[in-house]
Amino acid sequence: MRKPSGSADRSDFRQVRLLPQQSQEALALSAEAGWNQTAEDWRIMLQHGSGVGFRNRQGELVASIVSLPYGNVDWIAMLLTRRDSRGAGLGTRLFDIALDTVRKSGRGAALDATPLGKPIYERHGFHSVTVLRRMELRTPAETHGAAHGIQAVEAPHTAALAELDTGVLGLDRRWLIAELVRQPQLVMLTDVSDPDSLLALRRGRIAYQLGPLYAGSPESAMRLTAAAMATSAEQPLFVDVPERQAEYLGRLASLGFREQREFTRMALSHTTCTGRPEAFYAMAGPEFG
């Protein structure tokens, strides 16, 4: 029988390394929290990153954290504790493990924080970089045919896409772009009139995730968004937008998108990510940044 929430003790759990073949177990944690990740997202993270968790006495996975290598920066994500195992400090312990690894390596660290997590990360030396608004479309909006000049991107162009991604975000995510391009259900688009443009649309557990989205102007961003909406098969759609992109946010609202929640992008004080924020219109989800 499971203990009531808040009665767990650290001695009830053992620390474990998380492996790609455990992605279905990990999915149960993020699904309980209502998050949008899929088992394939977990496989990608655990194959390329470092995952740590805790199992209870019954051998069930009850807590997790993942660190993803983005060049000289570790992206920290998927800090989760199952409801019936909270109160034993598992999340705090996992975050300490991730930070200890970062500090010993001399690397930087960044993450996307919920409002509840933000003050905790601030106490650990993280500072705010930008605020992102999760915009959600539940009722399909009408689209007016294919957007002129929008075309699909094929796998052979992965190197160019990775170069664009690095230039905009200031993070080296070549392995992630290569993984995304190989996903059979992924839609990746570009605006032929905009050399700075890229949009990825992938199926999540509860909604499509639109992002990353890079563009040279709000007009280009909207052309790509309209094309993605026409592709999403009338399913719910999430797009996480930096608040500095006020014009794009306004246009999304006019199409029926509503703000669901916010994230704060945060980084340790010594972390440097020199990119081009003016071209950054949407992230790839808080798991990937």
Rank of each mutant, 00 (worst) to 15 (best):
residue 50 S to K: 14
residue 54 F to A: 15
residue 276 R to A: 14
residue 42 W to F: 09
residue 136 E to H: 15
residue 72 N to K: 13
residue 185 Q to S: 12
residue 178 A to R: 04
residue 162 A to K: 05
residue 43 R to H: 08
residue 77 A to P: 02
residue 188 M to T: 04
residue 264 T to G: 03
residue 173 R to L: 04
residue 56 N to Y: 00
residue 239 V to F: 08
residue 3 K to P: 03
residue 1 M to L: 13
residue 111 L to W: 04
residue 97 I to V: 12
residue 201 L to T: 11
residue 75 W to A: 09
residue 182 R to P: 01
residue 195 P to T: 02
residue 23 S to D: 15
residue 277 P to T: 02
residue 269 S to Q: 15
residue 277 P to V: 02
residue 266 M to E: 10
residue 245 Q to K: 10
residue 15 Q to I: 08
residue 262 E to N: 14
residue 172 D to G: 10
residue 130 T to V: 09
residue 230 A to Y: 00
residue 265 R to P: 01
residue 38 T to N: 06
residue 265 R to C: 09
residue 289 G to F: 08
residue 47 Q to Y: 04
residue 239 V to P: 02
residue 197 S to P: 02
residue 12 D to N: 09
residue 2 R to W: 09
residue 252 L to N: 01
residue 160 A to M: 10
residue 25 E to G: 08
residue 88 A to P: 03
residue 62 V to P: 10
residue 235 Q to M: 11
residue 69 P to K: 10
residue 176 L to Q: 12
residue 274 T to I: 07
residue 164 L to V: 12
residue 246 A to F: 13
residue 150 I to D: 05
residue 143 T to Y: 07
residue 231 T to M: 12
residue 225 T to P: 02
residue 136 E to I: 11
residue 134 R to S: 05
residue 164 L to A: 11
residue 133 R to G: 10
residue 61 L to W: 05
residue 76 I to G: 02
residue 68 L to Q: 15
residue 200 A to C: 14
residue 181 V to C: 07
residue 213 L to I: 03
residue 92 T to S: 15
residue 244 R to W: 05
residue 219 E to P: 02
residue 7 S to K: 09
residue 285 G to I: 02
residue 87 G to D: 05
residue 233 A to E: 12
residue 120 I to F: 07
residue 41 D to Y: 01
residue 71 G to V: 01
residue 30 S to G: 04
residue 64 S to Y: 06
residue 149 G to I: 06
residue 254 S to P: 00
residue 152 A to D: 06
residue 61 L to M: 11
residue 201 L to C: 13
residue 28 A to C: 11
residue 283 M to V: 07
residue 136 E to T: 14
residue 21 Q to A: 08
residue 254 S to T: 13
residue 92 T to I: 09
residue 275 G to D: 10
residue 33 A to I: 00
residue 249 L to D: 00
residue 33 A to N: 03
residue 166 T to P: 01
